[in-house]
Simulated assay, not measured.
Amino acid sequence: MTQNDPTMLLLLYFVLPVWLLAGISDWLCHRKTNIETTTGTKETFIHILMFIEVGVPLLAAIFMEVNALIIGLMIMCFFLHEATALWDVSYAVTAREVSPIEQHVHSFLEMVPLMALLLVISRHWEQFLSLFGFGPTKADFSLSFKSEPLPVSYVAVLLTAILLLEVVPYLEELVRCRRQRKA
Score class of each variant (00 low, 15 high):
residue 48 I to F: 04
residue 12 L to G: 13
residue 137 T to G: 03
residue 135 G to L: 06
residue 180 Q to K: 14
residue 105 V to Y: 02
residue 31 R to G: 12
residue 5 D to A: 12
residue 53 E to K: 12
residue 161 A to V: 09
residue 92 A to N: 05
residue 166 E to W: 10
residue 177 C to I: 14
residue 69 L to E: 04
residue 15 V to L: 13
residue 105 V to W: 01
residue 3 Q to I: 13
residue 109 L to K: 13
residue 157 V to W: 05
residue 104 H to D: 06
residue 170 Y to L: 15
residue 33 T to A: 13
residue 39 T to P: 06
residue 169 P to F: 06
residue 163 L to K: 07
residue 96 R to F: 12
residue 82 E to M: 04
residue 178 R to Q: 08
residue 70 I to D: 03
residue 10 L to A: 15
residue 104 H to E: 12
residue 68 A to C: 02
residue 2 T to D: 12
residue 167 V to S: 07
residue 171 L to W: 08
residue 64 M to N: 03
residue 89 V to T: 10
residue 156 A to N: 11
residue 10 L to S: 06
residue 144 S to I: 04
residue 50 M to T: 06
residue 172 E to F: 03
residue 130 S to C: 03
residue 112 V to L: 14
residue 88 D to W: 01
residue 122 S to Y: 00
residue 91 Y to W: 10
residue 96 R to Q: 15
residue 132 F to S: 08
residue 64 M to T: 07
residue 79 F to T: 09
residue 7 T to N: 09
residue 51 F to A: 15
residue 77 C to F: 06
residue 156 A to L: 14
residue 76 M to A: 03
residue 163 L to M: 14
residue 74 M to R: 02
residue 126 E to L: 04
residue 157 V to G: 07
residue 37 T to C: 10
residue 135 G to W: 02
residue 117 L to Y: 06
residue 47 H to S: 08
residue 129 L to N: 03
residue 144 S to P: 01
residue 17 P to M: 09
residue 137 T to F: 00
residue 92 A to R: 03
residue 47 H to P: 09
residue 179 R to C: 15
residue 133 G to Y: 00
residue 6 P to N: 08
residue 8 M to G: 08
residue 117 L to D: 01
residue 33 T to N: 08
residue 166 E to C: 06
residue 18 V to M: 15
residue 163 L to I: 14
residue 118 L to Y: 00
residue 163 L to G: 10
residue 178 R to D: 04
residue 126 E to I: 04
residue 145 F to T: 13
residue 182 K to V: 15
residue 128 F to R: 03
residue 182 K to E: 14
residue 17 P to H: 03
residue 160 T to M: 10
residue 42 K to T: 15
residue 38 T to S: 15
residue 153 S to Q: 09
residue 124 H to Q: 10
residue 22 A to K: 10
residue 161 A to H: 02
residue 25 S to G: 15
residue 27 W to I: 12
residue 48 I to Q: 10
residue 105 V to L: 01
residue 72 G to P: 00
residue 6 P to T: 02
residue 116 A to S: 01
residue 71 I to N: 00
residue 114 L to C: 02
residue 166 E to V: 15
residue 95 A to E: 14
residue 48 I to S: 10
residue 169 P to K: 04
residue 143 L to T: 01
residue 142 S to W: 08
residue 67 N to K: 04
residue 18 V to F: 14
residue 69 L to R: 04
residue 111 M to Y: 05
residue 132 F to M: 11
residue 183 A to P: 14
residue 146 K to I: 00
residue 46 I to N: 08
residue 59 L to K: 01
residue 130 S to A: 09
residue 117 L to S: 01
residue 34 N to F: 10
residue 149 P to Y: 05
residue 95 A to W: 12
residue 152 V to A: 12
residue 148 E to N: 09
residue 155 V to S: 08
residue 21 L to E: 07
residue 77 C to A: 06
residue 12 L to F: 02
residue 147 S to G: 00
residue 12 L to A: 12
